[in-house]
């Protein structure tokens, strides 16, 4: 009983982080129908920012949250302007390899700068603290992260459905050509989607750094988790990413308890089954 409760809480908390990671991927796919293979590398960058600020400037990793988000925004926008808009009109193969190249570049840039050593954030108000609530013991940092994820989701949701900018994004995602004729700066909207995508995932990275180790190759795993999440929620669906993130979190925690060596395989299998048998996902169009 205690174990079950512990697992459920842990799964939901991890799931919220997964949801935040998947949010940007889903948004970018929704707006311009391109899959970003470098998504996990954006996350990795957010993690390293938290690590650097904490280790060398002795800043609490909490302070690194806005810094990481800002850096992620710039990275997203920069990637769009330097690379993505050049490959958008190319064949699908070129798109895939473009973002794949970006992924490799960022990954090995990190390898060059930080070496393959495993690192972790050691100081901070929340690091290593646990809260005890009845049966359940939870890391304070995970509770806090989950809260930030909820806030970030609410903010993005509000932005997309309640602001003029959000309307531009939605219009571009429905029909970019038509949106262009209506006077919407679709190129700007694409860049914005990449910016938001980069900011949210880097924020998730800074949160994740509180309780997950950092290596240059950590990104791929989270990219794949994000793919599975986005597929399950429905490509392009914000709400779908939220619900699917929690489901994926639960699947991973529970399957990890059953056969820990294969916990990631379960997620890959989920992706495969979803895209084959329900390609629209839970909330897709």
């Amino acid at each position: 009983m205690e174990l079950t409760a512990q697992l459920l809480v842990y799964g939901v908390l991890m799931g919220l982080i997964f949801a935040l990671i998947a949010l940007g991927l889903s948004l970018i796919f929704g707006v311009m129908n391109i899959v970003n293979f470098a998504h996990g590398e954006f996350l990795m960058m957010g993690m390293y920012i938290a690590y650097l600020l904490s280790t060398f400037l002795h800043l609490d990793p909490l302070i690194s949250l806005p810094i990481a988000a800002g850096a992620g925004y710039l990275l997203g926008i920069g990637s769009y302007h330097i690379l993505i808009h050049r490959i958008l009109r190319g064949p699908m193969v070129a798109q895939l390899f473009g973002t794949f190249g970006l992924m490799l570049f960022l990954r090995y840039l990190a390898m060059y700068i930080f070496t393959p050593d495993v690192r972790s954030v050691k100081q901070g108000i929340l690091v290593g603290k646990t809260l005890s609530m009845g049966w359940v013991n939870v890391d304070a940092s995970k509770i806090f992260s989950a809260g930030v994820c909820l806030l970030a989701f609410a903010a993005i949701y509000w932005m997309i459905y309640r602001t003029k900018l959000g309307r531009g994004l939605r219009a571009t995602s429905i029909d970019a050509e038509a949106a262009k004729y209506m006077g919407i700066d679709t190129k700007g909207m694409n860049a914005l989607a990449w910016g938001i995508g980069g900011a949210t995932v880097a924020l998730a990275g800074a949160l994740l750094a509180h309780f997950y180790y950092v290596t240059p190759t950590v990104g791929m795993l989270f990219t794949l988790i994000a793919f599975a999440t986005v597929a399950l929620g429905g490509f392009g669906s914000i709400l779908g990413a939220f619900v699917a993130g929690i489901i994926i979190g639960l699947i991973m925690v529970i399957s990890g308890q059953l056969v820990s060596e294969l916990k990631f395989s379960f997620i890959y299998v989920v992706y495969f089954l979803v895209v084959v048998f329900r390609p629209r996902g839970l909330f897709g169009w």
Binding site: L83, I87, G90, A94, F97, G98, F100, G101, L104
Partner: peptide, 12 residues
């Protein structure tokens, strides 16, 4: 990184 740059240039 050299690979990656080759890849991106080829793609674009």
């Amino acid at each position: 990184m050299v690979y990656a740059v080759i890849m991106m240039v080829i793609a674009a």
